[in-house]
């Protein structure tokens, strides 16, 4: 009797777990389905190769935003990865009151709302330089990416066993070389995937760009001039009153989701491929 009840309970729990797991996936599938359905209709080759047209005209593409997004991501990457890796190394290697504080600050930085990052980008770059630019957008995005890179670097390097460091020291290697040529290479897979996760984190951000990168209907690769970005374009077009701009916004959403998806797959691949066996 008792046994039967327990088996029944067991089955019930199993069904519940499966039910709730599937139900969490539902919204995800719904989003993907809607974006793909509406997005694919908007996409053709011209969509990728032409610039937006003035309201009222038919057609137009998103070349400027694709180029702009990549420009912004590259700037953010160039700023955030060296700083992030260095701070990550510092936090792994040094333990004192200052680094404890720094760790808290990194967490705070991670929690800062993205719109605030935009304001910081505005104050730090736009104001002194006297105009909106891709650089200011990249800086704002770099601030968002930084904590992700720091934490991933720190967590990966912490896993590198101390006996490797000792082996390096015992060969007469100095501290700097030990860190750069033994510890960092051993954690390279994790550090790299940290950078990619950071890029994923900022790829879809709109708010930091509103008053930094600003948007630009023309093709621009000059980091000192405003650029458009996919999330900005989606934001602007989706709020417009024009029917065919909605279509373009859907297409841009599809492209953005594809970029994120591909980056995620690359990240997974790198983590698996570059995992160091200790």
């Amino acid at each position: 009797m008792n046994l039967k009840r327990r088996i029944l309970k067991d089955k019930l729990l199993k069904i519940l777990v499966i039910f709730f797991s599937l139900s969490t996936l539902l919204p995800l599938f719904f989003v993907l389905f809607t974006v793909v359905k509406n997005g694919i209709a908007a996409i053709d080759l011209k969509f990728f190769t032409s610039l937006p047209v003035p309201a009222g005209e038919q057609g137009g593409g998103i070349l400027n935003s694709i180029v702009g997004t990549f420009l912004l991501l590259i700037i953010a990457f160039l700023i955030a990865s060296p700083f992030g890796i260095l701070v990550g190394i510092f936090l792994t290697e040094v333990q004192n009151k200052f680094t404890d504080l720094l760790k808290i600050l990194v967490n705070v930085l991670q929690g800062v709302p993205s719109i605030v990052m935009g304001i910081i980008g505005y104050l730090l770059v736009v104001k002194p330089m006297g105009g909106f630019s891709a650089l200011s957008g990249g800086v704002a995005l770099a601030f968002m990416m930084l904590p992700v890179v720091i934490k991933n670097t720190e967590e990966t390097l912490r896993l590198v066993p101390s006996y490797l460091k000792e082996a390096s020291f015992s060969l007469g290697t100095n501290y700097t070389r030990t860190i750069l040529r033994v510890v960092l290479p051993a954690g390279m897979g994790g550090v790299f995937s940290g950078i990619l996760i950071g890029i994923l984190r900022i790829a879809g951000e709109t708010a930091p760009l509103l008053f930094t990168a600003f948007g630009n209907p023309f093709l621009n690769i000059n980091p000192l001039k405003p650029v458009d970005a996919l999330p900005l374009l989606i934001f602007n077009y989706a709020m417009s009153p024009y029917e065919d701009w909605y279509k373009i916004a859907w297409g841009a959403s599809f492209v953005l989701i594809m970029i994120v998806l591909i980056l995620t797959i690359i990240t997974k691949f790198i983590v698996r491929r570059w995992k160091t066996q200790f």
Binding site: P161, Y163, L164, V182, A186, T276
Partner: peptide
Amino acid sequence: RKIGMVFQRPNPFPT
């Protein structure tokens, strides 16, 4: 460099 050392656990560099 003049006094080499080998540890309890084998620790070749994994990379």
